[in-house]
Amino acid sequence: MRLTVLGACGAWPEPGQACSGYLVEHDGFRLLLDLGYATLPRLLERIGPEQVDAVFVTHGHPDHCADLNPLLRARHLRADKPPPLPVYALPGALDPVLALDRPGMLDDAYVLHEFTAGDRLRIGPYEARTRLLPHWVPNAGVRLTAGGRVLAYTGDTGPSPEVVELARDADLLVAEASHVDEVPQDSVRDLTSARHAGRQAAEAGVGMLLLTHFWPGTDRTAAQVAAGDAYAGEVAAAVPGLVVDLG
């Protein structure tokens, strides 16, 4: 299993950056985890839009799903249209982004699979287990298993023991870490610090921690140091183009 970071900014993309988006590949199957602002150009530097096999969206905030619209346009507005794209999301999460075009324009470009957080899914070669994590809107963390390897991704979440259960013994935890040490008081239930992500990674016993969803202006090096104070394993900061092979 291989993960490629398309973007790792939270809220809006910094210059030259993109918001949350990750390409996960195994046995030739290409799955997108989230597709936020400015991720599609990053994706198209690597593969064509017709080569995406499925999309999983954790929640409906636009920094996680806005570029689904141009991806569907890039697949639909071409002479050799690929088959409809399977898209997995919580009920209603994608209603706004799917309504950006005139009614019916993109209906043939995708098949929407709505699920309930807690469901188990089969997405190509991946066994996907989902878990509801705390955020301003419903957010589904996901645990992907394929080829004996496990990748856990939180989407956006506040501190929760559910994160530890999602990531238990995973080879890689991709964890939201909007802030380094202190999360603003109005967000403490809905976002996580890098320091707390490190504590959760240690408790879960993961093989590697990848910090992501950085608030614009966040010092990535400081975030790695903060996470490493509690977690003794490898800590990396997500940047566009970073590739992690899980064996």
Rank of each mutant, 00 (worst) to 15 (best):
E176G: 02
D108K: 15
V163Q: 14
D181C: 09
R168G: 02
L151Y: 05
T130F: 04
P184W: 14
T130H: 09
S160T: 09
G198W: 00
L144G: 07
R149A: 11
L209Q: 02
S178R: 09
P134Q: 07
A194N: 06
E203R: 08
F115P: 09
P138S: 00
G118P: 05
V163A: 15
L132W: 02
V180F: 09
H196G: 00
V137Y: 11
G147D: 09
H196F: 15
G124I: 01
M208A: 12
G207I: 00
L144I: 03
L172N: 08
L209C: 01
H135T: 05
E182C: 12
V164L: 04
A170N: 00
V180W: 05
D181P: 00
H113S: 13
G141R: 06
D171P: 09
M208D: 04
D108Y: 08
I123S: 08
P184E: 12
V180E: 02
D119E: 13
E162W: 06
L144P: 14
N139E: 13
A167Q: 03
V111L: 12
D181M: 14
D107K: 08
V164N: 07
L106V: 02
H179F: 15
A170D: 09
E182H: 12
A194S: 10
R122D: 11
E203P: 03
R129K: 10
G155T: 06
V180Q: 01
P134L: 02
S193D: 04
D186K: 13
V174Q: 00
V180Y: 04
G158A: 10
Y126C: 08
A170G: 06
F115Q: 07
L173A: 03
Q185L: 15
A204C: 07
D119L: 10
L173V: 00
D107E: 07
E127I: 11
A167T: 07
D190E: 11
A117P: 12
Y110I: 07
R122Q: 15
T192W: 05
L166Q: 09
P161V: 13
F115K: 08
R122L: 13
A202F: 02
L106W: 06
L173H: 01
R131E: 14
P134T: 03
A197Y: 05
S187P: 02
H179M: 10
P134I: 01
V206S: 02
D181F: 14
T116K: 12
Q185D: 13
D171W: 13
S160W: 05
H135W: 14
V111R: 15
D156L: 11
R149H: 11
G141K: 12
A194L: 14
V164Q: 03
E162L: 15
L106N: 04
D119N: 12
G141V: 04
E203G: 00
R143V: 05
A117T: 08
P125Y: 03
R195S: 08
T116Q: 15
E162D: 14
R122N: 12
S187V: 10
A109V: 15
G205W: 01
R168E: 06
G118Q: 11
P134G: 06
V150T: 15
L191K: 15
S160P: 03
V183I: 11
A175T: 02
D186P: 04
E203A: 12
L166H: 06
G158P: 09
P161W: 05
A146V: 07
D171E: 10
A152L: 11
V180A: 01
P138Y: 10
L173T: 01
T145G: 07
P138L: 12
T130A: 05
P134M: 04
S193R: 03
L144C: 13
A202E: 06
R149K: 14
P138R: 02
L172E: 09
